[in-house]
């Protein structure tokens, strides 16, 4: 059984007896997983590649549903509702739970249109409201100063780090409750990485954050809670400052001391 620290504060998400099986696979990639996710905090998911951390992350907004044949079991509770239910409205779910990917994913449109995209999907047409919210999102993503004079330029002209901030701006512009980060700095240089990390920490005031990272230092730097996953199971979930100093599980200790992974 996993060692799970008691989370006193409110929970953003609650994973219960969750199993996930990829299309065509015989065995589940995630097995009977239980895990609370704290509200307005950053939870990092770490573990060796193939441990299921990205698979778990991609279950929270059910992006797995884009590919037929994937199977969920158990429950993921979000605002007291099981989002794995077949009746779940995926469009609304994804508006409330945003995602940032391993690589910057600027759409083939202008900087402004990228940020406005999610709002436009929700039917916001009012020009002043749109441009106010675009500006706010860009400011919150700490990129406003760099792009304010070229909002109509193609977003693909930005650098990698800038594009990733743009994607964050695009995600927070629709005011989600949860943000999922899937190794958001794996394609970036150290300076851009530091900037994104800083930004992630600032964002937790407003959203609950789950971040998958292959970089333990990053988990230690940014997160409040860390979950260590191994072979599709959650081994330990603890307060980050405690877990990196005195892990309770032997496997966790071996992993964070670099004995495998």
């Amino acid at each position: 059984m996993a060692t799970i620290v008691d989370i006193q504060q409110e929970k953003a998400l609650e994973v219960k007896n969750f199993e996930f099986t990829y299309a065509g696979a015989d065995l589940p990639s995630i097995k009977k997983l239980n895990m609370p996710i704290a509200k307005n905090a950053i939870t990092a998911l770490i573990g060796p590649s193939g441990c299921g951390k990205t698979t778990l992350l991609r279950s929270f907004n059910r992006i797995h549903d884009l590919y037929p044949g994937n199977k969920y079991e158990g429950e993921i509770l979000f605002n007291d509702k099981n989002i794995l239910s077949s009746k779940e409205d995926l469009i609304n779910l994804r508006i409330k739970i945003g995602m940032i990917f391993q690589k910057p994913t600027a759409f083939p449109m202008s900087i402004y249109d990228n940020v406005a995209y999610g709002m436009r999907l929700q039917g916001i047409k009012n020009k002043t409201e749109l441009s106010n919210r675009v500006e706010k999102a860009l400011q919150d993503a700490a990129i406003w100063k760099e792009v304010k004079d070229r909002l109509k330029h193609d977003a693909n002209g930005l650098s990698g780090g800038q594009q990733q901030r743009l994607c964050i701006a695009r995600a927070i512009a629709v005011e989600p409750e949860v943000l999922l980060f899937d190794e958001p700095t794996s394609a970036l240089d150290p300076i851009s990485t530091a900037g994104i990390e800083e930004l992630v920490v600032e964002l937790k005031e407003r959203v609950s954050i789950i971040i998958v990272t292959h970089n333990m230092q990053q988990a230690a730097r940014v997160s409040d809670y860390t979950g260590f996953m191994y072979l599709g199971e959650l081994i330990e979930l603890g307060r980050t400052e405690e877990m990196f100093v005195s892990p309770r599980e032997k496997l966790t200790e071996e992993y964070i001391t670099g004995k495998f992974g």
Binding site: L66, R94, Q122, C167, V174
Partner: peptide, 10 residues
């Protein structure tokens, strides 16, 4: 990944 990010915005 580009398609997924558009789906991820709903």
């Amino acid at each position: 990944i580009l398609k997924e990010s558009a789906y991820a915005l709903g």
